[in-house]
């Protein structure tokens, strides 16, 4: 009951603070730009002549993944900067005082905030992603092999990052939590790309960088799973061997073990946040 009330409050905050409107405008601009870009793709003349349908599908796959990465980045930054003020900001401003003096458990308040952020972040990623897939289908006729799984994995990536932002927001200041969360998100992505290059070049040591970073923060792993669901299965084959390190193609779907690890990761980080928030003086 408390959690649902607080979740509703969190969603209302996002709506009232014009976050929703800002995202809507940004997304419509991105959708329009991508529709224009994809329309230019048809009948594109290259040095080698007009693009074959297979090449066009490869490029569509790459571009779709690139744009989806844009959405996941927007969702990541948006939720990280919403999650920051949620705990640290409310404690710093004094808003938390009157709220936590009510007969509520702090864990229920935290769960409500998390739930509200999950609803907001996932809602955005799924709706914007779906709109993008429909735009691509309308313009170039490309339909990804597993759109539902892809969107679900994008949503999962958002959940991982906002859970991390919530943990950071319960231990450091508002600004710091947003910046550190987005920084870690970026660092893990870069580590993933580095690891991919290592694997492509056959350097195990470098490849391990990506693997370890994907275990420490599952955003990049989930993102790679989402890419795999969006891209054309023959795209990798067409890219040819040695291109496995390319950052906007993924060479394998996610394993159930990795998905289970992502769930455990979220649960553990959430638990740590609850513990830290429970003990915090406000």
């Amino acid at each position: 009951m408390t959690a649902l009330t607080v979740a509703g409050l969190t969603v209302r905050e996002a709506a009232r603070r014009r976050v929703v409107w800002a995202l809507l405008v940004l997304t419509v601009v991105l959708l329009a730009l991508s529709a224009w870009g994809f329309s230019k793709l048809i009948g594109l003349d290259t040095e080698l002549g007009t693009m074959t349908s297979g090449e066009a599908r490869l490029v569509a796959s790459l571009l779709l993944n690139l744009i989806m990465f844009g959405y996941s980045l927007i969702a990541a930054i948006g939720t990280a900067f919403l999650a920051g003020p949620t705990v640290a900001g409310e404690v710093e401003s004094g808003q938390a005082l009157a709220l936590l003096a009510r007969p509520v458990r702090r864990s229920a308040v935290l769960f409500g905030k998390w739930l509200g952020l999950v609803a907001f972040g996932c809602g955005y990623v799924v709706l914007a992603g779906l709109a993008q897939i429909l735009v691509v289908r309308t313009v170039v006729g490309y339909w990804p092999p597993a759109p539902v799984a892809g969107l679900a994995l994008l949503a999962a990536e958002t959940i991982v990052l906002l859970t991390l932002a919530l943990l950071l927001s319960s231990v450091v200041s508002t600004m710091a939590s947003g910046i550190v969360a987005v920084g870690l998100f970026g660092a893990t992505w870069v580590a993933g790309v580095v690891g991919g290059l290592g694997a492509a070049l056959g350097n195990e040591g470098v490849a391990r960088v990506g693997t370890v970073s994907r275990v420490l923060l599952p955003t990049d792993g989930l993102w790679r799973g989402a890419m795999n669901a969006f891209q054309d299965p023959v795209a990798l084959v067409q890219m040819g061997p040695g291109e496995g390190g390319f950052p906007f193609l993924s060479d394998a779907p996610l394993t159930p073990a990795y998905l289970a690890w992502a769930v455990v990761w979220v649960a553990v980080v959430w638990g740590l946040t609850a513990l830290s928030f429970q003990r915090r003086d406000v």
Binding site: L9, R12, A101
Partner: peptide, 29 residues
């Protein structure tokens, strides 16, 4: 704290809510 009312020294309420909505929230909680 079921029957406790508290006015903190540092009084700040959700600026994006109306006064009536702030009371609704606290009644619910």
């Amino acid at each position: 704290r079921s029957a406790v009312g508290y006015l903190p020294e540092l009084f700040r309420y959700q600026p994006w809510l109306t006064a009536a909505e702030v009371l609704d929230l606290h009644v619910k909680l």
